[in-house]
């Protein structure tokens, strides 16, 4: 399982998510999906399942597919069930000697498709123990239908259904901790990651998730320049700030053992992450200092808990 990561070698592989898809310029989802699929061994095949969302409508538009592997989409709420069904069918064919080679099963769902509407489907597939990976590309709102709040949207974020005005100051509730909930499924592997630096973290976690037998889950931060309202060229910087402020910590849980993947050299104040994004702009208005304090207190409390659990 342990392999040395080499970026030069990895980018030499032909991409399994091709150009020509219709995700917005600078969309994090393309980076996340190409990054996860890059972890597949070159000779292996995959079946990619997708929940409805920006990724699905942009990468699979008849007669154009951006995947080099098989792809199946059925609905918004059942991508994990769809994937688990394909995996079961494959096992049945394999038993009868009707299919050869290694085939891996990977589902991508947005946060709406994962934290909310597809949650029961995901929970069931994980509990049944299918040999599959579920990857949530978390852009923290329903982007494809015009930026509605989801249970993944962080507190105070402005969306079209958690607007900012005289009566309302962005989302009222905290972000649901889905990664934690997936750990509670006692599955072999759960990871939280993001595209960062030389992609070692994302790559090694994707490799583990794909090649660990049984159900595995990855939660990957996937900035959306439209919904988050930042200049699209700043993708890498926004992600780095999410990680260095501990808003989006990198960790993995292998067979129930928590492991912190990255300790920021200097933990930055959350406002460094909030400031460049239009969705948090109102938090910097006079009189709203308490919002930044509340956001900081929430991050600190979550971070302390993670340090405790991972013994870091």
């Amino acid at each position: 399982m342990k392999r040395v990561y080499n970026l030069k070698q990895e980018v030499e592989k032909p991409p399994r998510l091709t150009g020509g898809h219709r995700l917005c310029a600078g969309c994090g989802a393309g980076v996340v999906v190409a990054g996860v699929l890059r972890a597949l061994n070159k000779e292996d095949r995959a079946v990619v399942t997708n929940a409805t969302g920006c990724l699905e409508v942009s990468t699979f538009m008849y007669p154009y597919t951006a995947y080099m592997d098989s792809f199946i989409h059925s609905a918004f709420e059942n991508s994990a069930a769809t994937c688990s069904g394909v995996e079961a069918a494959y096992n049945a064919l394999k038993r009868r000697g009707k299919v050869e080679g290694t085939v891996k099963f990977i589902t991508f769902g947005g946060d709406g498709g994962t934290y909310d509407i597809g949650f029961q489907s995901l929970s069931g597939a994980m509990e049944r123990g299918h040999d599959m990976v579920y990857v949530c590309y978390d852009n923290e709102a329903y982007m494809n239908t015009g930026i509605q709040r989801s249970s993944s949207t962080p507190r105070f974020a402005r969306t079209t259904t958690s607007p900012v005005g005289a009566k309302n100051q962005g989302k009222k509730q905290e972000k649901k901790d889905l990664t934690d909930i997936m750990v509670a499924h006692n599955i072999p592997y759960v990871a939280q990651t993001a595209p960062l630096g030389n992609f070692k973290d994302l790559h090694t976690k994707a490799y583990k998730a794909i090649y660990t037998e049984g159900p595995c889950f990855m939660n990957v931060l996937s900035p959306c320049p439209r919904g988050w309202d930042y200049p699209m060229a700043k993708l890498a910087e926004i992600i780095k700030l999410a990680v260095d402020t501990c808003v989006w910590p990198l960790f993995e849980v292998e067979e129930g053992v928590w492991h912190l993947s990255y300790m920021p050299k200097r933990k930055l104040p959350v406002e460094d992450f909030l400031r460049p994004q239009g969705r948090f702009r109102h938090m910097f208005e006079q009189g709203n200092e308490w919002m930044i304090e509340a956001a900081q207190a929430y991050v600190d409390q979550r971070w302390e808990r993670l340090l405790e659990r991972s013994g870091a």
Binding site: L7, K8, E10, V11, E12, P15, L17, T18, G19, G20, H21, L23, C24, A25, G26, C27, G28, A29, G30, V31, A34, G35, R38, P195, N198, F199, L235, A236
Partner: peptide, 24 residues
């Protein structure tokens, strides 16, 4: 790996010029 459109080809350890048909 940061290109969302897989528009930076690599061959023989060399990063080649952009794939302008797909670069957004």
């Amino acid at each position: 790996p940061f290109c969302p459109d897989s528009a930076i080809p690599v061959k023989g350890g060399k990063r080649l010029d952009f794939d302008y048909m797909h670069c957004k």
